[in-house]
């Protein structure tokens, strides 16, 4: 195994070859009672295959509890996968430890879920941003300040000198999220994982932050994994979208294709449950599949969606899990028996 190079190195993966590559990824959490008796496990990520090219922006969409954050944290090396592999820039993550893992983390910016909890309340922005630089060995106060100013300018928090002295509570929700993004950019990562970066924000600020992410992603040719529960916020901000349900990826396609010609009944359900604002919405019942999101402890057999699926085929869908890659079109993959 080769050790990864320092963080300033540009991505080495050959052109066309993905920067990040996960295969058969599983992340299960043990479920314990009274702290020690093992009573089962939560299968938060179950058999996920995923690739992310250098400079590619991809969304992971799915409802609350389907395993999006667990997937993100596994890709970041914060959870040890129960099975499967993650390779970043040609290097498997599984064997990494200590320094090598630290170097990997420096190459991946992380915008964690919950913007209000993301910034330590008693540090000013200067300290919040200096910390990762110090941890990752960026020497010299002047160099650190230069990098902080660049990052703040990049996210539109200017004049940087004013922002640096402020504390998180003195900033609006949108400004706080800009600081979080600046922090993710500081170490000049090759990839950013942004977990629900806008779900707590108002409509207008939401669009500002999504535009900001898209702009820095393009300008620096970053790979971006954008995690969201809201399918209406993917269209203009990513190239490709994956839909996740019950720990599995059920569909993936270029984003416009996914929205226009979705292939999985779950994606379909999401699309028909969502509406653009329209006075007529109040006059019609929406088509919504019955039932509840699947349990990850005792997941449904076969296709995870079969108990709620209007097209489920008896004798098939509840028996065998559909493979993840039926292809209605070359770059469109669906895990559903309808596409066999």
């Amino acid at each position: 195994m080769t050790t990864p190079q320092p963080s300033t190195r540009p991505p080495q993966a050959a052109p066309g070859e993905p920067l990040l590559c996960a295969e058969g990824l599983h992340t299960h959490f043990e479920l314990r009672q009274w702290g020690f008796v093992r009573v089962g496990s939560v299968r938060a990520v179950e058999g996920v295959d995923l690739t992310l090219g250098a400079g590619e922006a991809v969304a992971v969409v799915g409802e609350s509890g389907c395993g999006k954050s667990s997937l993100a944290r596994t890709l970041l090396g914060l959870h040890r996968p129960t099975g499967g592999t993650v390779r970043f820039d040609g290097t498997p993550l599984n064997g990494l430890s200590g320094r090598a893992l630290k170097r990997y983390r420096a190459r991946v910016g992380y915008v964690q879920q919950d913007p209000y909890g993301a910034l330590p309340p008693f540090m000013d922005i200067q300290r919040i941003l200096a910390e990762p630089l110090i941890i990752h060995g960026v020497r010299g106060r002047a160099e650190r300040e230069r990098r902080i100013d660049t990052a703040l300018a990049e996210v539109g928090l200017t004049p940087a000198a004013d922002t640096r002295r402020k504390f998180p509570h003195q900033l609006s929700g949108g400004q706080q999220q800009r600081v979080v993004i600046a922090r993710a950019l500081l170490l000049r990562p090759a990839m950013i994982i942004a977990d629900e970066p806008v779900s707590m924000l108002d409509a207008s600020v939401r669009v500002e932050i999504l535009e900001l992410l898209r702009r820095v992603q393009r300008e620096h040719r970053l790979a971006l994994l954008y995690i969201t529960h809201d399918l209406s916020t993917v269209r203009h901000y990513v190239d490709r979208a994956l839909v996740m349900y019950g720990g599995r990826i059920v569909e993936q396609a270029p984003v416009t294709d996914l929205l226009a010609r979705s292939g999985h009944p779950y994606t379909e359900a999401l699309l028909s449950a969502l509406g653009d604002p329209d006075a007529d919405n109040a006059r019609r019942q929406r088509e919504v599949p019955g039932g509840e999101p699947p349990s990850l402890v005792h997941p449904p057999s076969g296709c995870r969606f079969h108990p709620r699926c209007p097209h489920a085929m008896q004798g098939k869908c509840e028996v065998e899990p559909p493979p993840p890659d039926f292809r209605p079109r070359a770059d469109h993959r669906v895990a559903c028996w309808l596409h066999e």
Binding site: A203, V207, E211, L259, D276
Partner: peptide
């Protein structure tokens, strides 16, 4: 302006923030 800031599923034109 608020209406124009709302992301829509099937709209070519991207929403614009206020």
């Amino acid at each position: 302006l608020l209406m124009a800031a709302v992301p829509r599923l099937h709209q070519e034109r991207p929403p614009s923030p206020i």
